[in-house]
């Protein structure tokens, strides 16, 4: 395990799980951290901030790609960019008060549990946008005001208002993370996927909530599950099955191709779908294959065959659906590691 998130900052047990960075675009200074979870002091720690400065999320368009992930020293960093309402007077010519604020959320979690990252960053973004869309510009204003050398009572008031909002934001982030991991672990406990089992093993080894001994479960537990529980029936998944699911993955060694079989799990035909296979090289996401699927019948399995890039093992499958207005909605994102899938000769 990498030591970039090591002992210098005092942590509670579950704070190892993830670090959340909420950043904003300052017209003078560029990307600046607005809030960090679990501890705001991390913003002055170079080891935490180094990967953030190079994350490809800065090149992400807010409208097109949904999010980008980057692997760095044993951690996967998921980054998502969006625009928030603003009434703040900008410090660059040509920008109006109404020019929206550019907010970036980055979540870093250990690679062993990165299967949870996609959904977690989506939830965090949704929660923050839903609850703080109108207030983010006030927090930014307070962040900028805190840099002022001479602080007038008005500036103090502005800083205090922003600080209060930040407390609520941090509480929301904390609650969202705990709720998410608790449910995600319960829902996936019976999964036969190697990646999921690896993630659960990680939680177990870290002594989170899967300890076989109930007595070890305390406040730090996320889920009411035990690793070797035999008395209960298998837990049924709550909520509807996902729209699409990957049913088979093969790596064809002869032709150096990746075969991905994906099923439409719904009882409806899907239209205007687009399937993209990418890989991240250095800090840039490169598209290897994009296929348009005009119609995808109910319960139909489709086979996508993508070439691979020599010496690159990790790929990302993204599936989007375009609505009548030309807006794309992400339906599925899945990371594929060639080292973990079937290898066949032809």
């Amino acid at each position: 395990m990498s030591d970039i998130f090591d002992k210098t900052v005092k942590k509670k047990p579950k704070e190892d799980l993830c670090v959340v960075y909420v950043m904003f675009f300052d017209e003078k200074r560029g990307q600046v951290p607005l809030l960090m979870y679990p501890d705001d002091r991390l913003r002055s720690d170079k080891r935490y901030m180094r990967p953030i400065n190079f994350h490809p999320v800065w090149f992400l368009e807010t409208e097109d790609l949904d999010h980008i992930d980057l692997e760095y020293k044993g951690y996967t960093f998921f980054g998502k960019k969006f625009l928030a309402k603003s009434k703040r007077q900008k410090r660059r010519a040509g920008l109006e008060e109404e020019t929206p604020e550019t907010i970036v959320i980055i979540v870093s979690i250990p690679v062993e549990i990165d299967i949870f990252g996609d959904e977690l960053i989506k939830r965090l973004t949704e929660e923050l946008r839903e609850n703080f869309d109108d207030q983010l510009s006030e927090v930014i204003e307070s962040e900028i005001a805190s840099e002022a050398v001479i602080k007038t009572p008005k500036i103090h008031e502005c800083i205090s208002k922003g600080t209060k909002i930040k407390v609520f934001m941090r509480e929301l982030i904390d609650k969202t993370i705990k709720d998410y991991f608790s449910k995600a672990i319960e829902n996936r406990a019976e999964s036969t996927s190697l990646k999921t089992q690896k993630a659960i093993a990680y939680f177990s080894l870290k002594g989170f909530e899967f300890s076989p001994l109930s007595s070890l479960k305390g406040d730090g537990s996320f889920a009411n599950l035990e690793l070797f529980e035999t008395s209960k029936k298998p837990i049924e998944l709550i909520g509807p099955k996902s729209i699409l699911s990957i049913t088979h993955l093969n790596f064809i060694e002869n032709s150096q191709e990746l075969e991905i079989t994906i099923q439409n799990n719904t009882d409806k035909d899907l239209t205007n779908m687009s399937v993209t296979i990418t890989h991240v090289k250095e800090f840039f996401e490169k598209v290897i294959m994009t296929q348009k699927v005009e119609f995808w019948f109910s319960l139909e399995e489709l086979l996508f065959v993508s070439p691979i890039v020599p010496h690159i093992n990790e790929y990302l499958v993204s599936i989007k659906q375009e609505d009548d207005h030309g807006n794309s909605n992400k339906i599925l994102t899945h990371k594929i590691d060639l080292k973990l899938i079937n290898k066949i000769s032809s």
Partner: peptide
């Protein structure tokens, strides 16, 4: 025809560059 190469997925609707 090679029996081993005809897999369950071989006949599915296929998309490739």
């Amino acid at each position: 025809f090679n029996e081993k190469q005809w897999r369950e997925s071989s006949g599915l609707r296929q998309f490739k560059p």
